[in-house]
Write a protein that binds this DNA or RNA. Sequence first.
RNA 1: GGCCCGUUCGUCUAGGGGUCUAGGACAUCUCCCUUUCACGGAGGAAACACGGGUUCGAUUCCCGUACGGGCUACCA
Length: 393
Amino acid sequence: MIAAGNVAPQYNHETRKTMSNSLTLSAKEVDDKIAAGVPYVIRLMVPSGEEITFTDLIRGEVTVNSSLVDDKVLLKSDGMPTYHLAHIVDDVLMEITHAIRGEEWLPSAPAHILIYRFLGWESSMPQYAHLPLLLKPDGNGKLSKRDGDRLGFPVFPLDWQDPVTGEKSSGYRERGYYPEAFVNMLAFLGWNPGTEQELFTMEELIQHFSFEHVHKAGARFDPEKAKWFNEQYLRMQTPEALANRLRPVVKSKYNLGDDDIKISSDYLVKAVTLLKDRVQFESELIEKGSYLFQAPDVYDEQVLAKKWKPELAGFFNELIENLSSLAEFSSITIDTVIKGTAATSGIKPGEIMQLLRVFVSGQGAGVDLIGMLELFGKNEVVDRLNKALKKVN
RNA sequence: GGCCCGUUCGUCUAGGGGUCUAGGACAUCUCCCUUUCACGGAGGAAACACGGGUUCGAUUCCCGUACGGGCUACCA
């Protein structure tokens, strides 16, 4: 089993007879070489023409003829074991019951079975399960870390920098995926519960998982579905929890004081409630809802070009006045005032609703308008309206 | 190239001889809701790779072909 090996293509039961190794050299020659410090490796001597059968929990019985298995290196010339030897020793010492790994290990599994056998450890051999691989969303081949940054989704759980190449890869956590969503999404790539339930907690996953329901073919990764899982978990968060996590972000982004109303629980919870069902990530709360925390400086040009007419100034001034005189500033009273003012001015609500939204938020589309006005409160709304009117006139 | 594993809507998949007119989800399309955009609701389009068997009957079992994936390192 000892070979003075360099690069050796196809080192197996056939070719080893033609190589310089402990099988072809005399015992003395071998001893001399070792004594002389000639580097060597120790290989597994695979028998020829033997059927090796093992049970894979996912694929059932797999049979391979040993002649097809090559003489794997077990101990490298530096004395370190290869994975082939190491994982077996580890697993036996740790009393591992199930060896679950990717399908790329399937071809070397027969060699592993042989090692257990030769070591007399067959009775402590774990059960093997070879999981299907994750494939690229586009093109061919298995998913690799490069695909992630190329296509804009993470591949690793956490941000990671290759210590050798210095190459950086973004992680799920840093991209804002909930750990629960990540686990749930991953579990469904290749496995399914056999029911129509898709959202599983870790406890449910542990309870329901079974190898029989693992699909055999590789699964093409779908970034859209991954986002969908996160969206589902975001929906499950309470507005209070989201508000608490949003507070420091809003505070520092807009440089707010500790007692600023915009980071009060009341304001934040209402803002989050308005935003919650429109986003997939917590980071979008502030990206898509920035106008809830800061009055706009720019106003949607397209909407303005299409809807704004100088004649409307009178109406908006009147609206500001009517809103100002409101004793109770609630969605019901706000709604009534807007419709009422429009009616007395002979203006259809359709003409001014979107303008109102743009004046107050800068954007042509967004969260519920009336709810947003109520959230702002009377003074803020009046201020924003005056500011906007000054700008468009 | 050789060997191993696989193949149901665009994608993830259910289904394991008749109940399949093949189910769900993501994505997509239409409509409703909403004086916005989303969300939500309703509906639509969309698949058993192909060829041989076996069988009264194959998406389901067997074989072949095609295609896909993996392995083929003193890496895991």
